[in-house]
Design a protein around this nucleic acid. Structure first.
Lengths: 169, 169
DNA sequence: TATTAACCTATAGAATTAGTAGGTTATAGA
DNA sequence: TCTATAACCTACTAATTCTATAGGTTAATA
């Protein structure tokens, strides 16, 4: 029992050491979630937070959330075309939510901005694509693992709505 | 009740339509999991499947799993340097597992090959990095959502060992 | 001594990301 | 009707990452 605990602690030590070596070699840590999606979610939450239904300008969100305005413009435009936002041009214009925050699941937002939620296309529900290297999905060791990851992620992102994430102060 | 169900169905319809438009514009679906990691897991599972502890050659795995041999070489080398595999040069040489498959968690493998398991560095346990745009993590709407995703993914990948994924036929 | 298979270094095409630049169009208010 | 505003649109680009390929060297076995 003691030996096993020691071994475990050693494993953790080794793993952290390896990771620290990697950290120093590569300066920037890769992110799975693109900035586009991250900014998109933040912008939606910003709009949802406003109690009144008046349109919110890109410039306001851009300043408040530290997002490049031009980049944000393209993201909000995409969210409008996807049916999440409505827009109004000219003075006093901006973007506003079309649906209630509680009716906007994070799965829907991420699927539109980021693409598939699954880590590999061969387990994606909405973006399915066969692996060109795999002879069969049944014998693939990665396949069933990734199905489990997909389902647990889907659960979290499906349970969380825009109302949930914008409510947190 | 009926109306609500109709609305739901309509939402699904709209979301799928949007996704299908995206599909036709972008030919290739982005994968979160790199081929490197995917190949690495497959190779480890291949080695684990062999009952005997004799070294397995890169060429054998490469042919059996449809992986470019040179690419696979670099991956196995990395797995050796990370302490997952041992190696033997010359005829009859190859790679072999150092630890028991049941003692190799998928979290460890993925952290070494892919990097952080978290979708954003600001919620990563082993590769933490502050967001340069966020004023505070407490007020960030993305932060707590990504913590939930991270924890559920970590649970799945921690529960699965190499023994589990190589056992599946 | 020849063969084998791991090990090492460098390079490179393709794709993606995260923007920037420079406009046009539609609306509200004066 | 004019002017300011803010959404909308098109094109481009620098940087990075991914997925390899090429061409070797070193060490072990028969």
């Amino acid at each position: 029992m003691l030996i096993s605990a020691e071994c475990f602690r050693f494993d953790i030590f080794v793993e952290r050491s390896i990771i620290n070596v990697k950290k120093s070699i590569f300066e920037y840590i890769r992110s799975m979630l693109s900035k586009k999606t991250k900014y998109g979610i933040k912008a939606l939450a910003f709009i949802a937070k406003k109690a009144d239904k008046k349109p919110v300008q890109t410039s306001e969100i851009s300043k408040s959330e530290n997002i490049s305005q031009k980049f944000l413009e393209s993201i909000l435009l995409e969210l409008r075309k996807s049916g999440f936002l409505g827009s109004k041009k000219g003075k006093g214009g901006g973007y506003y939510l079309i649906k209630e925050p509680k009716d906007i699941q994070m799965t829907a937002v991420i699927r539109v901005l980021e693409g598939p939620i699954a880590m590999v296309p061969c387990v994606s529900l909405n973006y399915y694509e066969k692996c060109d290297d795999c002879p069969s999905e049944e014998t693939c060791s990665v396949h069933s693992l990734m199905i489990q990851v997909r389902d647990s992620t889907l659960k979290v992102l499906g349970d969380n709505t825009l109302a949930d994430i914008s409510a947190r102060k």
